[in-house]
Design a protein around this nucleic acid. Structure first.
Length: 417
DNA sequence: TCTGGGGTCCTAGGACCC
DNA sequence: TCTGGGGTCCTAGGACCC
């Protein structure tokens, strides 16, 4: 079993793209995230500010305190996708099996490619993969102008951990049989799937490294069920060709599933100031329902479950959901979330965040579709414009300005109809 | 220093059915 | 007449990832 799974990670992706768009940011301490002073967090931090302790996920306030001289750039979510798509296109030239794990992370499976790609100078299959991966990394740098790091191993968790060690802009291959030597000294937190909670519980058992976790004997009564279950996944993940229990995600390794009917879609929003007014909350829900149903229609799917998410001023978060006949209509979603809001919002509580999630997605049933009301003509026209020019090309009046009379308002605020 | 937004996966209790 | 067992769906919450 050769090391043939690669994990490619784009280094400080959002920062790198912002630097492409504004070269004056190159070499500067850069933080991409919510607006400074607002209720936002860091989404990407350059290496210059990481040395000061700034990390993604950190509140912007804290980042500003740690790195007062950094340049703060607002996250532009629509901007980064096309760059990720360019990267994927390069990857597909080099590897037949590419799986997009997130906007800045890809897994490649070179199974069966070793001999095809072998060159006379390669001493073994590992050398072949390593050479190809270095070429591919250079190609991304040259063509898309983005730095990437690649880890290579026998399993996905190993490849992922190796990519972390390869940063910045490096390549690291962990040979078959050397997984434990590589991972053993690492903190448990480095293993994909072990987060802060599992880390703390393991620390309570005196386990801080992956090596320690693996060495705990099965019979050890002090080890909780957590450590036992983690060890199962870990052992498999560190074994060449190993299985995929717990921490190893998306089991059938690289299966691309039916995107139209899988998973869920959600949109949520944190208010600048906590909300106590029903009308303001309902306006926000209108905007969220409009956006999320538009995305659902673009997928060609319908949702069987509608869920309202509420986060109160004290940060407690609840969800309330309901199963419904499959729908993709904003009005259906809105009726449900308004009703759920009434039942879930205690008097006097202030709301920090509202979210609308659509899940249990299904393909439209042709039998049902026959009798379903057609999408109103104006709705269809709005969809068509948004499909061409993007969601924000059109805003509903009530959404654009709370309290405004209904109607469609163009980008500049002029009335379209 | 108060904590974004988009997801996936897992668990657990209760309803309901046979 | 004090009580089985299995299967599936629904709902809520939480850990985790980027």
């Amino acid at each position: 079993m050769a090391a043939r799974i690669a994990c490619l990670d784009l280094d400080t992706f959002f920062v790198s793209v912002e630097r492409l768009l504004d070269p004056s940011l190159v070499g500067q301490p850069v933080v991409v995230g919510g607006r400074k002073g607002s209720r936002g967090v860091v989404t990407s931090a350059s290496y210059e500010v990481r040395t000061l302790g700034v990390r993604s996920g950190m509140p912007m306030m804290e980042a500003a305190r740690l790195a007062p001289n950094a340049i703060f750039v607002p996250t532009r979510h629509d901007t980064y996708g096309p760059y990720a798509a360019q990267v994927r296109a390069v990857l597909e030239r080099y590897c037949p099996v590419v799986r997009t794990a997130s906007i800045d992370e890809f897994f490649l499976d070179f199974a069966g490619c070793e001999r095809l790609y072998a060159r006379p100078g390669d001493i073994d299959a590992d050398a072949t993969i390593l050479r190809v991966v270095r070429e591919l990394r250079e190609a991304i740098q040259a063509e898309v102008k983005l730095p990437a790091s690649v880890g290579i191993g026998t399993t996905r968790p190993v490849a992922k951990m190796a990519s972390g060690r390869a940063k910045p802009a490096g390549v690291l291959l962990v040979r078959a049989g050397e997984e434990r030597a590589f991972a053993g000294p690492l903190p448990v937190r480095r293993y994909p799937g072990i987060g802060p909670v599992a880390e703390a519980r393991l620390a309570g058992m005196g386990i801080t490294t992956l090596g320690q976790l693996l060495e705990v004997p099965d019979e050890d009564a002090r080890v909780g069920a957590l450590a036992a279950s983690l060890r199962v996944g870990l052992g498999a993940g560190l074994r060449a060709g190993g299985g995929t229990r717990l921490p190893e995600r998306d089991r059938p390794a690289f299966q691309e599933h039916d995107a139209s009917a899988e998973g869920s879609l959600s949109n949520e929003r944190t208010f600048f100031v906590d909300v106590g007014d029903t009308l303001v909350a309902e306006d926000a829900l209108r905007a969220l329902a409009e956006r999320v149903t538009w995305r659902l229609r673009r997928r060609g799917a319908r949702a069987r479950t509608i869920t309202l998410k509420l986060r109160f001023a004290d940060f407690t978060t609840i969800t309330r959901g309901r199963s419904v006949p499959p729908t993709h209509n904003e009005s259906d979603v809105l009726a449900v979330v308004f009703d759920l809001l009434r039942g879930a919002w205690p008097k006097r509580a202030r709301i920090r965040l509202l979210g609308v999630q659509l899940s249990n997605l299904v393909e439209p049933d042709p039998q049902v579709a026959l009798f379903a009301p057609p999408r109103p003509r104006m709705g269809a026209a709005i969809d068509a414009v948004r499909d061409r020019f993007g969601y924000d090309a059109i805003r509903m009046g009530a959404v654009a300005r709370p309290g405004a009379e209904a109607g469609v308002v163009g980008r500049a605020g002029s009335r379209v109809r």
